[in-house]
Design a binder for these strands. Structure first.
Lengths: 224, 224
DNA sequence: GGTTCGATCAATGTATACGAAAATTATAAT
DNA sequence: ATTATAATTTTCGTATACATTGATCGAACC
């Protein structure tokens, strides 16, 4: 049996991954409109796997399937951004509490510490791109490690949606000093198994970000 | 092809609705295994719309698509039930707070009051089935009216999953007197625009339910 | 000239066909 | 008898064909 090292993903998975990646990076612009056939040709496959991928992406809120008119990339309105962040806030606070409540594996704790360390390095060198990536990974770890798989799944989805917005506004944000400090404090609380503190700090962090977000939305040219 | 009255739904929507209904009612048992062709025949359509519906149901956590082995109805393990309720708890508390914070329309307030009234009637006549339905509608209203569409969507999904469990355990539950009282108090807080009270009461309600759930899970024959 | 109705078109929604991969069964060899 | 291998079958994954339906464009009538 010749099984070389090459990955064998299904067409549907490929389509899903490619489209989601393009949407997150705004290579497919918010509000842009596509026909099934267009995307099928773009991805080098037939309409069938494209449709299946589209159904998933619609469920996750990245696409809208407009009956008889193909797909539209979900627009980021101000309201949408606010709503997404509100949901993410309450899920992440819960995750932080849970994470600190469980006995965490040393390896996992290290992953968290590493992510914070990378955020520090990126902040030092003023690399907004790298900082956003490390921060994204920190938040991902927070929710994935919390021990509730259902929470992790849904929170990850909202995190991705929030990440899309963030990538659009990288250059507009103030130097995120507080994030690093807060995240380090959360990790410390996790290490000490102190759920209340973890929760409180993360809540404060999220509230601060919510205020910063309001300012940001004021300055942005987004539909209401 | 037969045109049955006013139905204008697509096959995919029909398949989605039917399958979900059957799963919620345990007409398709947890853990049961089906081939695409079976379900297609059962629903009187081809595999294509069945597959699309299945993709949606898998996203929502009601089905698992087992590569090359068709679909499996998601099992309700104790862990799953606990996880779902934890997520629902934090989303609903947020919803209760938000709902009380906004200026609510008189019509919408009436809907909430009606739901509670129906719960009271059902409790009085000891109709567990009707009570569960009214309670489900109350929780649905709570999250749908909260003003955050993204929260509403995801919370509704978790509510449906929780509802599946509840329908399986109707006869095992104690007389839910506290639920009615608590829900009435939440509605009152909403009417008075008192988000803190709404949140506190609903949190207490959810915590009580979490404890009752633990007991229930002890007595049930579910996989861990 | 504007509006309405009809014909044509285009794109989806659904069915079906087909190839590939896994599972199963049968067969053969040790 | 047991294991391995080959043949067969089953079912999925994907492509393609087809029919339905909303849209578009034009012509006729007011």
């Amino acid at each position: 049996m010749l099984e070389s090292g090459s990955e064998r993903r299904s067409m549907t998975e490929t389509a899903y991954g490619e489209l989601k990646r393009k949407i997150l990076r705004s290579e497919l612009a918010p509000g842009a409109h596509f026909l099934e056939e267009e995307l099928a040709v773009m991805l080098g496959m037939s309409r069938t796997p494209v449709r299946e991928a589209a159904v998933r992406l619609e469920q996750e809120g990245f696409l809208e399937i407009v009956p008889r008119r193909g797909f539209r990339v979900t627009r980021l309105s101000k309201r949408t951004v606010r709503e997404i962040n509100e949901v993410l806030e309450c899920l992440e606070i819960q995750a932080a509490e849970r994470l600190a409540a469980r006995r965490i594996a040393a390896d996992d704790l290290k992953l968290l510490e590493d992510a914070v360390a990378r955020m520090d390095v990126a902040l030092e060198s003023e690399d907004a791109q790298a900082w956003a990536q490390a921060d994204y990974e920190f938040h991902t770890l927070l929710i994935v490690l919390c021990g509730n798989q259902h929470l992790a799944e849904v929170a990850k989805n909202f995190l991705d949606k929030a990440h899309r917005f963030r990538l659009m506004t990288l250059q507009l944000r103030a130097k995120p000093v507080y994030s690093n400090v807060n995240h380090a404090a959360v990790v410390e609380a996790v290490r000490r198994n102190d759920p209340q503190t973890a929760q409180d700090i993360h809540r404060a962090h999220k509230r601060r970000w919510a205020r910063e977000l309001s300012d940001l939305l004021e300055r942005l040219d987004l539909p209401e």
